Simulated assay, not measured.
Amino acid sequence: MQHIEQAGIHSGDSACVIPAFSLSESILAEITRAAKDLARELDVKGLMNIQFAVKDEQLYVIEVNPRASRTVPFVSKAIGVPLAKLAAKIMVGHKLADLGFTETIIPPHYSVKEAVFPWNRFPGIDIVLGPEMRSTGEVMGLDADWGMAYAKAQISAFNPLPTSGNVFLSVSDRDKAAAVQIARDLVELGFEIYSTGGTQARLTAEGIPCHRLYKLSEQARPTVIDAMKNGDVHFIINTPSSHESREDEVKIRSGAIAMKISHATNLAAAEASVKAIRSLKNQELTVKSIQEYHGM
């Protein structure tokens, strides 16, 4: 199961995908080998939860827990196997061979888990994710196309992605280089880009058309909030400029919740959203039951 957001965001708050969508074959093989070695060394019988991190094709272990986790039901639905039931039988002496579960299952479809947050119950709260878990539930999207599966998960998580309109894109200095391709893709998909000064300057320098909006602290009009209130913003990509977010950034992100504007607060989610929007524009959204996906 591959997380979409980078390490540093609590695993319970991060969206994730089965099967992995961007890991190399060598890293997948190394993860499999390391997981088996850890299970043998710890003498685990039943379920075990491992969190790995990958940087520059180097594998790291974040933590290992000899227990089940909240993702077990998601994985079970994704692959069509009742893992908790099988694990309980293993713990009381049954063998995997006796239970008919001896091979890794790689489903032919993508399953995306997305966290659900109680932001609307806390007006004015900053919705940026971090190491502290803040979600209160999970939803799931399935499709043969991973972009469409992500789009379905966003719909279920009350953050439906638009297929046209205007995008407000304003990111921290460390994210500006990576945001250029996201902006270029959005323009290619037919969106108009609106940004504050620093981001607009970078996008303009890269040849990407971009309209200027002002920060609240600049005391000029139109501000980002003006555009949001007027219904001129349909998707927001806003990453924090520092650990302690500026006051106007918090108002933008909390305003997105209050005004029910779709949003992404990190570039990994923004990149996934672009893929999902492309899928929504190029394909028909269809619905099938989990039983149909597993031929039941």
Rank of each mutant, 00 (worst) to 15 (best):
D37Y: 05
R212T: 06
K45A: 13
A88T: 11
P66K: 05
S241C: 11
R121K: 13
P209S: 12
Q200F: 00
A268W: 05
A88K: 00
A20L: 06
S273F: 05
L83R: 05
A276V: 07
G93T: 02
F52P: 06
I125V: 15
R246S: 06
L96K: 11
K215R: 14
Y60L: 08
D175N: 15
L99A: 11
P108I: 06
L28D: 00
L285V: 12
G124F: 00
T239I: 07
K85S: 13
M228T: 07
E271T: 12
D56C: 02
G147M: 04
V116G: 02
D98E: 15
N166T: 14
N49S: 10
L169H: 05
V180Q: 15
D232G: 07
L203G: 14
P222Y: 02
A276T: 05
T265L: 08
T199I: 09
H243Y: 03
S156N: 03
R33H: 14
L28G: 09
E5R: 02
K113L: 02
M91P: 03
K260L: 03
P107F: 03
P19E: 00
T196L: 03
G147C: 03
F168R: 06
P162I: 14
V139M: 01
P19V: 01
I155G: 11
V224L: 13
A269T: 13
E284V: 13
D175G: 12
A34M: 14
E132S: 12
Q58V: 14
K85A: 10
H294G: 04
L86M: 06
Q283G: 07
R40Y: 07
T196I: 10
I261A: 07
E206D: 15
R70F: 01
M133L: 07
L99N: 13
E114G: 01
K95Q: 15
A178M: 09
R278N: 13
G147I: 05
A269F: 01
Q6P: 05
G197P: 00
I252F: 06
M259T: 09
Y150G: 02
D185T: 05
E292A: 12
S22N: 14
L203A: 13
A157N: 03
Q283W: 06
R184E: 15
F52N: 07
P82C: 08
E132A: 10
A97Q: 13
E292M: 04
A68S: 15
R246T: 07
T104I: 12
V224P: 01
F122V: 11
M228F: 10
D143T: 01
A270P: 06
V274Y: 08
T239L: 08
A144L: 14
D37E: 15
P118L: 02
G255F: 09
V233C: 09
Q6T: 08
E41S: 03
V274R: 00
K113P: 04
I27G: 00
M259I: 04
Y110G: 01
I225M: 15
M148W: 00
A179E: 03
L267T: 07
P108S: 12
I106A: 00
G231F: 09
T104Y: 10
G124N: 06
E30I: 04
R221W: 11
